[in-house]
Design a protein around this nucleic acid. Structure first.
Lengths: 110, 110
DNA sequence: CTTGTATTTCGCTATTTCGCGAAATAGTCA
DNA sequence: TGACTATTTCGCGAAATAGCGAAATACAAG
């Protein structure tokens, strides 16, 4: 296994921006919903159960972090995952929290 | 591939607690440092470059989220990763941010 | 152009988080 | 026991974040 250098402070800041954006239940619900494929805002509003303005702001945060991407098609805006590995990792967390043997578990290759 | 059910709201809250704990540069520096093996608080204080009380609070946050674990040995408290996959994922994020082809990348196995 | 639909932005208040220094604990060693 | 070291807790003010409803924007359809 390659010995990796200690990440720089700047690198940790970039990483933290992603984690921070994901550190909200509503945003994780959005991300989970997008794991099944793209969704328009109206579907996400329903999935999250908050107001339009609130969901829109969450989408802005996720997009700014590069986690999702949007595309306007017809009358609606469709969002999709830009970082699909996020959901794989989230499921890995579930497994760990369910008490599975965590020590050797390796969620990410590379 | 197994069709996974939409995660519950409670599940997203548990996930969010982990992401939120990781959503701070100093805490990611700590996590990165622990990726090389356990460290005592004094070493982490040096690695992060903040005051003792600040680092201690960050450690409390990470421990409460189940990301790290501590053990008192002799005069010092040693911290180690409890969720090693976090660092693998963080490196995966670096790769994505460096502009690598992200579409098909899959950071976590199942 | 005007209307209607989909979505975002704005202003606001309440809550949370950050980093610090001082004080409190815990445990070791003489 | 008493001094000392390592670490955590407390209390503070400054800054960031959350959620809401109203208003603004974008744009397709008639």
């Amino acid at each position: 296994m390659p010995k990796r250098p200690t990440p720089t402070k700047a690198c940790c800041q970039r990483r933290a921006a992603v984690f921070k954006a994901l550190g909200h239940p509503a945003r994780l619900q959005i991300v989970a919903a997008l794991g099944d494929g793209e969704r328009c805002v109206c579907e996400l509003v329903e999935a999250v159960g908050s107001g339009w303005s609130t969901v829109s702001r969450h989408l802005t945060v996720l997009k700014a972090a590069g986690i999702i991407a949007d595309e306007k098609r017809g009358l609606q805006v469709y969002y999709r995952m830009a970082l699909p590995c996020v959901n794989s990792f989230a499921e890995c967390l579930d497994a760990a929290q369910e008490g599975a043997a965590v020590e050797v578990r390796r969620c990410c290759k590379s």
